[in-house]
């Protein structure tokens, strides 16, 4: 050996990531719930709107096109977030709940690498599901006519990337929190409260104040393409992009840092 080598601190092996994927995809209930929340909900929304439009065209506008795209993006974001939190909480706390974490620790594999493998492992499952749901919605908005034309290619690409960013952030938050708490149920409760109560509440405030900038959901909405912001009930806070990025980075570092810390120090 002629140089210092990090031989014992191997990079995360793809096998460990594949193991995380295996643990997720074999959970039929989780996979079905995630698909229903994303792809299923997209189809269901279109189906309901189509029926409404067919029965009462004067009160219910045409279902596709740009006019539906922003509404659809908001709905999909909310539902895909639930799927992301479900997957994130499962990846973070699944091994602990099943008592499997102990088996992994006694292999001698550094706990740090056990934790970090969860990140790509979960994203590999989550992102294609979200992408499939988004592609479905975007295709329907292109194919089915609306009142305000169809979304541009640029908008669709930007919106798709933003959606993936949003669900990735929520996944990482759930992963970090569940790794910290060691409980899937508690994580789901906390994040459901954050996403379904705190974020809309702050979003709806007339004068939310500086503290509102710290809400992750709002910071993420600030990064969304402006064409889809009409779909969000209260638009977005007038924070700078730099502030939004900072809030995003801090949340991610905090969640993953605490999750990693607890994974490494936890009595197994």
């Amino acid at each position: 050996m002629t140089a210092i080598a990090l031989s014992a601190h191997r990079p995360i092996g793809p096998r460990l990531i594949r193991a995380e994927i295996l643990k997720l995809v074999t959970r039929r209930g989780l996979m079905i719930a995630s698909l229903v929340l994303t792809v299923g909900a997209t189809w269901a929304t279109f189906a309901i709107l189509a029926v409404l439009h067919a029965t009462d065209p004067t009160h219910h506008k045409l279902i596709g096109g740009l006019s539906h795209f922003d509404d659809g993006m908001y709905s999909l974001t909310q539902l895909a977030t639930v799927a992301a939190v479900l997957i994130g909480a499962t990846v973070g706390a699944g091994d602990l709940a099943g008592g499997f974490f102990r088996n992994l620790v006694v292999t001698g594999r550094p706990r740090w690498s056990l934790f970090t493998a969860r990140i790509p492992g979960g994203l590999v499952v989550l992102l294609p599901i979200t992408a499939l749901a988004y592609a479905t919605m975007a295709a329907l908005c292109q194919v089915v006519p609306g009142t305000a034309g169809t979304p541009s290619i640029r908008l669709m690409i930007e919106s798709g990337l933003w959606l993936e960013l949003y669900v990735s952030a929520m996944f990482l938050l759930a992963l970090g929190l569940s790794s910290l708490l060691g409980s899937r149920a508690t994580t789901l409760g906390i994040l459901a409260g954050l996403q379904l109560l705190v974020t809309p509440l702050v979003q709806g405030l007339h004068n939310p104040g500086v503290g509102a900038e710290a809400v992750l959901g709002l910071a993420l909405w600030r990064m969304a393409p402006k064409e889809i912001l009409n779909g969000a009930p209260a638009g977005h806070l007038p924070m700078s992009m730099a502030a939004a990025v900072s809030v995003f980075v801090i949340w991610m570092l905090l969640a993953l840092g605490l999750g990693a810390w607890r994974t490494i120090t936890r009595d197994a």
Binding site: R15, A19, L22, T26, R28, G99, F100, L104, T107, L114
Partner: peptide
């Protein structure tokens, strides 16, 4: 072990480590 996985799958996940 993970109850939702088969015995073989559980061993595979452990072997990955």
């Amino acid at each position: 072990f993970h109850g939702h996985m088969t015995g073989r799958q559980n061993l595979w996940a452990l072997a990955a480590a």
